[in-house]
Write a protein that binds this DNA or RNA. Structure first.
Lengths: 147, 147
DNA sequence: CAGGATCCGTTTCGATACTG
DNA sequence: CAGTATCGAAACGGATCCTG
């Protein structure tokens, strides 16, 4: 199959080639914050993925080693996408984004998760590792942080 | 004049609307790491801005309040673009990106600035604030970190 | 000459319809 | 359910033009 490069690819050298595309980042966000794992769940995202966009981005993220595709043991039709270690390691960066966003964007969803934002402000690494540990086990983010 | 919205605009709610576009991020990177301030300097970037792309992104970043345009006191023709406080506050996030990139991207430029990466790993907030303080004064990033 | 605006041919994206 | 195919719309690169 032909490998197509996303236009957002650029030599910024900060890893942006892998995830700076807005749709790719939305997928990672949906996994971390919404506990989504399957094509169908991503598709129901409030932002409205087009099917081809979702498909290309899932493939892209898998090729980049950020996602791992696994067969659902209960239903072989439903592939599951999990964050690899490389993908989990994006958490501290995403959290830093949330912090910035909570400070400067009045409309940001980050304004509504003040408990998590407070933890990030105090010690990003600490809370990141706690959350990464939960995601590794397939557990969702602490619900009490999303109030 | 008609305000055109960048395609990369998206409701990801993490502040991504403002800077996730690759060109916008390149400008911020050039200011922080290369000490660039003028249209002409950005244009000479290794990644090769087209003039129209650079112009739209500078306008965009100024409208977002991330850049401030000032007239060069020495040469009124050369506008200077500086990071606002909002823009400076992107530093911790960029540094988190660099950290990820140095870990996972063998070709990353981050692999060549090991001293800075080491500082970021130890304490992102601390080194970020030191660098932000220097940028505020118009000083470049510590040269010894870019060896 | 610096800083942009405009135009245009080409590439890539993405909404929708469709398929295994 | 999980994707492809199609095709118009949008962004891009590059040349050129404009303005102080």
């Amino acid at each position: 199959m032909k490998r197509k490069r996303l236009r957002s690819h650029c030599p910024i050298n900060f890893g942006l080639e892998s995830f700076a595309d807005k749709w790719s980042l939305l997928i990672v966000r949906d996994i971390i914050f919404r506990g989504k794992t399957t094509y169908g769940e991503f598709l129901k995202s409030e932002e409205g993925f087009a099917t081809n966009i979702l498909a290309t981005r899932l493939t892209h993220l898998e090729e980049e080693g950020i996602l791992e595709k696994r067969v659902n043991p209960d239903d072989a039709r439903k592939n599951q996408y999990w964050l690899s270690e490389k993908g989990l390691d994006l958490v501290p960066m995403l959290f830093e984004m949330i912090l910035w966003s909570s400070k400067y964007d009045p409309k940001s969803e980050a304004r509504r998760i003040t408990k998590l934002v407070e933890q990030i402000r105090k010690d990003n690494r600490k809370i990141s590792h706690k959350i990464m540990e939960r995601l590794r086990k397939g557990l969702p983010i602490f619900p009490e942080y999303l109030d």
